[in-house]
Simulated assay, not measured.
Amino acid sequence: MAHRIDVQHHLLPQAYVRAVGRDRIADTIVSNQCPDWTAEVSLEAMDRNGIATAMLSLAAPGFHFDSAADAAALARLCNDEAAAICAQYPGRFGFFATLPLPHIDESLAEVDRALNGLGADGICLLTNYGGHYLGDARLAPVLEYLNARGTVAFVHPSDIEGGRPLPHLPAATLEFPFETTRAITNLLFSGQAARLRDLRMIFSHAGGTIPFLADRISRLERRPDLACHVPDGALAEMKRFYFDIALSAGARTLQPLLDFVPPSQILFASDFPFAGEDTMAATVRALNGQGLSADVVSAIEAGAAQALFPTRRMAAVSPQQAVVLNSQI
């Protein structure tokens, strides 16, 4: 029985690909190729890997138009397509809506349209918009509104603004983990994390380097000007977040994450189609092949997501519809 819930699964609407450019999309990922994606391609991979439901989102590079109207129009097109896919395949897909940030008024309007009108399960945020990281005061009105609504926000890393220090390497390899770490650290020491108590944030790829650097980041509390922003302590704030295991299911990455937060805050994710089906299958095998208890695996594969999205009707897929790769686990 397919039962996994994939919280990092990307759609590539043709309007988005045309607007951003295949080369720019390809430049961020290890394969250096922009995938040819359709919902049916996703469903076939999901069925072969025991994934009942995938939560769709846009990923990097996103779009950062100077024109608020252009950004808002493209966000609407992408969100409309995601909603249409969910309606076409009930239970198989959910989605995190895209916002035309850093344009605040247009983003607030799209939050309402997506959550109230389209049935979005949450909002997708990028780690930075034009170099302004989550935690920046310029983005605060949107995060505060999401918090007031008790929204789930999926946070995907963006490319570094101004060019990578190692430009011959794709952003996905080094910059994405560090981008997530920068965004979390800025949320902490801007004071926003302490204020956004009802905004449930899922960070990609095991939180970047957070499980490894958490203690080092917490040393910033030695500075009174920074400590005042984390009255409960930086570690306590970081431990409130949720983390997915896209590209992070192996023991060298997953075990530090399990030492950092409980399985109820860790979610299955594939990063498909930017990571191919071979990576999706390897994630399934790694999670099930390192001797974790059945309760831990169950929480990561579905339980944590079901708790975050209690009103989402997840798919129930029969064994005839899904070929789970048990023979390779």
Rank of each mutant, 00 (worst) to 15 (best):
Val7Ala: 05
Ala15Lys: 02
Arg18Lys: 15
Asp23Ala: 15
Ala26Ser: 10
Ile29Pro: 00
Ile29Gly: 05
Asn32Trp: 09
Gln33Ile: 09
Val41Ser: 14
Leu43Gln: 08
Leu43Cys: 06
Glu44Leu: 11
Glu44Ile: 11
Met46Gly: 08
Gly50Thr: 13
Ile51Arg: 09
Thr53Trp: 07
Pro61Leu: 01
Gly62Asn: 01
His64Gln: 07
Leu74Asn: 04
Ala75Thr: 01
Tyr89Gly: 08
Pro90Lys: 13
Pro90Gln: 09
Pro90Arg: 09
Pro90Met: 02
Gly91Gln: 09
Gly91Ile: 04
Phe96Gly: 02
Ala97Lys: 07
Ala97Pro: 12
Thr98Pro: 02
Leu99Pro: 06
Ser107Asp: 01
Glu110Asn: 04
Asp112Ser: 13
Arg113Gln: 12
Gly117Val: 10
Leu118Cys: 07
Asp121Cys: 13
Gly122Gln: 12
Cys124Thr: 09
Leu125Asp: 07
Leu126Cys: 00
Asn128Cys: 01
Tyr129Met: 01
Tyr129Glu: 01
Leu134Lys: 02
Pro141Gln: 00
Val142Gln: 03
Ile160Met: 14
Gly163Ser: 06
Pro165Thr: 08
Pro165Ala: 12
Leu166Ser: 05
Pro170Ser: 15
Glu175Met: 10
Pro177Gln: 02
Glu179Arg: 02
Leu187Thr: 02
Leu187Phe: 04
Phe189Cys: 04
Gln192Thr: 12
Leu199Thr: 04
Arg200Leu: 05
Met201Thr: 10
Phe203Arg: 01
Gly208Pro: 04
Gly208Trp: 03
Arg216Asp: 09
Arg219His: 14
Arg223Thr: 02
Asp225Cys: 08
Ala227Pro: 06
Val230Lys: 06
Pro231Phe: 09
Asp232Arg: 15
Leu235Glu: 10
Ala236Lys: 13
Ala236Asp: 10
Glu237Tyr: 11
Phe243His: 07
Ala246Arg: 14
Ala251Phe: 04
Ala251Glu: 15
Arg252Cys: 06
Thr253His: 11
Leu258Cys: 06
Phe260His: 09
Leu267Ser: 11
Leu267Gln: 11
Leu267Ile: 03
Pro273Ser: 00
Phe274Cys: 05
Thr279Leu: 08
Ala282Thr: 11
Arg285Ser: 10
Gly291Gln: 08
Gly291Val: 06
Gly291Pro: 06
Ala294Leu: 07
Asp295Ser: 14
Val297Cys: 09
Glu301Lys: 13
Ala304Ser: 15
Thr311Pro: 00
Thr311Phe: 02
Arg312Met: 12
Arg312His: 14
Arg313Phe: 03
Arg313Lys: 14
Ala315Arg: 06
Gln320Glu: 15
Val323Cys: 07
